[in-house]
Simulated scan of single mutants.
Amino acid sequence: MDRQAEALRLAEALLEDIELQRLKASEIVLKASRLARLVGHDDLQEFLSLEREGYAVRQPAKWISKAGRWVNDDREKYIPIPLVRVEAMREGARQAMEALRGGGNFSGDNALIASRNHDERITSNADVYGRLDAICGQVVATTYDMVADVYHELLFSELQATLFAQAQADVDGTLAEAGGSALDKIEKVSARLRDGDPESVSQALTTCRRLIDAVADHVFPAVAESYEAGGHSLEVGQQQVLNRLQAHVHSTGASHGRRDRIRRALKDLYSRCSAGTHSEVSVQEARFVFLQTYVLLGEVLTLAGDARENE
């Protein structure tokens, strides 16, 4: 199973376990520990590690607070034992209360004293039980909040991946047809950029520019006559790459807002690809320029298909 898919499934199951109270607090901590390891969530891993192994003499106050382990309001002392021992002590206190409630018939000269001591023991165990039960509840609540954050991040990431996969399926064929030899270089450039190779920056930007040129040649070959686009005359010769792309977008019947957005984005990308040098563009920026070029050209190439579907 894909690691992200497994993490998403585990996070969803864990949230249900907590909401339906199907697991003890220590079992929730163990299950959440696997999720934290799968997604590499540092905060969740640190918190759960402390709950599994116990708190040392000095630990981050935020986790002690999140777990409700302070003994009193001055925050000078806290309960450091592992959560599984907290649960065991809580169960011991509960059993002691049950046993004490089963007896209480006192007589004789010391009946009043014995009754008072009996009640005090019940109260003492109730206090212990309440304090330890609160820790268990706080640990579960804190774990739930962090697991919920992880779940929504994974869900959003899966949605992004699904949407991109759908777009990629629509784009790849048309881009391969339009891009010609420039497209042949994409995989090599992409691989070098993933590796963080600075020498790939110039090559990546050059490939992006050539790809834009190739798409313009494919969707709107150069002609001598100007093109009328909403009252504006556009020169669409060989050198007017962006004008030809703008003319194509207009010819598909795209809305004014969409045409304007695509025009601005193409202008910015083409300018960046044409002027970029090693000193001006980092590897990280080149990756995003490369990705944005792919997505935007894909949108341009699929506009004609959108227009046919809307007829």
Rank of each mutant, 00 (worst) to 15 (best):
T252S: 09
A5I: 10
I262F: 02
I135T: 12
V281K: 00
G276P: 04
V57R: 10
A247I: 12
H248T: 08
M146A: 13
D109K: 03
L100D: 09
A96V: 11
D217N: 12
E235A: 11
A161S: 12
V283I: 05
A11V: 08
C273T: 14
Y151Q: 13
L297I: 07
I28W: 00
T277V: 13
E76I: 13
G179S: 09
D170G: 10
G196K: 01
S65F: 02
M97R: 06
A36F: 02
R101T: 10
T302Q: 03
E177D: 13
P198A: 13
T142Q: 07
T207W: 00
Q138P: 04
T277A: 07
S274E: 10
I135Y: 04
A304F: 01
H152G: 03
Y55K: 06
I64W: 02
D2M: 05
A134R: 05
G104F: 02
F164W: 06
K77R: 09
T206R: 06
S115V: 00
Y151F: 10
E27C: 06
L154K: 02
R90Y: 00
Y151W: 02
A99S: 02
M1I: 10
I28C: 06
R263F: 07
D127I: 04
A141Q: 09
L205G: 05
G298M: 04
D74F: 03
A134K: 06
L205T: 08
S271G: 15
Q45C: 05
L175T: 08
D42G: 08
T302H: 01
E98S: 12
Q21E: 14
G54Q: 03
L38T: 12
G305W: 02
P221M: 04
L35Q: 04
V215Q: 01
I122C: 03
L297Y: 02
I135P: 09
